[in-house]
Amino acid sequence: MAAGSFFSGLGYLGEGFRLIREPGLRLFVIIPLVLNVLLFGLFFFFLAELFSAMIASAMGWLPDWAWLQSLEWLFWIFYGLVILLMLAYGFVIVANLIGSPFYGYLSELTEKHLTGQVVDTEGGWGQIARDIPRALWREIQKILYYLPRALGLLVLGLIPVVNLVAGLLWFLFNTWMMALQYVDYPADNHRVSFPDLKRRLGRHRLSALGFGLPVALAAMVPVLNLVVVPAAVCGATAYWVREGSQTPTS
Rank of each mutant, 00 (worst) to 15 (best):
I83P: 04
N36W: 04
E22A: 08
V82I: 15
N96C: 07
L147A: 05
A208T: 10
F91E: 10
E15Q: 15
F7G: 01
M86D: 02
F6A: 04
W137C: 12
Y12Q: 04
T115H: 00
A238S: 15
A231T: 08
G167E: 01
R191A: 15
V118Q: 05
N189E: 12
G16S: 11
L62P: 01
W125E: 03
N36Y: 08
A88W: 00
P214I: 05
L201V: 08
Y145E: 00
E49T: 10
I159C: 02
L13R: 02
F44L: 07
L106Q: 12
T121V: 10
I83R: 06
G11M: 10
L85Y: 13
F91S: 15
I159W: 03
L201E: 00
L87D: 04
L172R: 07
E108W: 07
G157V: 03
L169Q: 01
A166F: 01
A231K: 03
A218R: 07
C234N: 06
A56K: 07
A219E: 03
F78K: 10
R199P: 06
I159E: 07
T175V: 15
G212H: 14
Y105K: 07
F46E: 08
A232D: 00
C234G: 09
T249G: 03
Q181W: 13
G116Q: 15
L197N: 00
T121A: 14
A187L: 00
L147V: 13
T247R: 05
L144Y: 09
T121K: 03
R138Q: 11
N163P: 13
S107E: 06
F102P: 04
L153V: 10
L201W: 00
L151T: 01
L84N: 08
R134V: 13
I132Y: 14
P32F: 04
L144T: 08
L10I: 12
V119R: 07
Q69Y: 01
I77C: 03
V94D: 00
G123R: 09
L84V: 13
M54D: 11
G14K: 11
P160Q: 04
S70I: 09
D131E: 10
L172M: 12
Y145D: 00
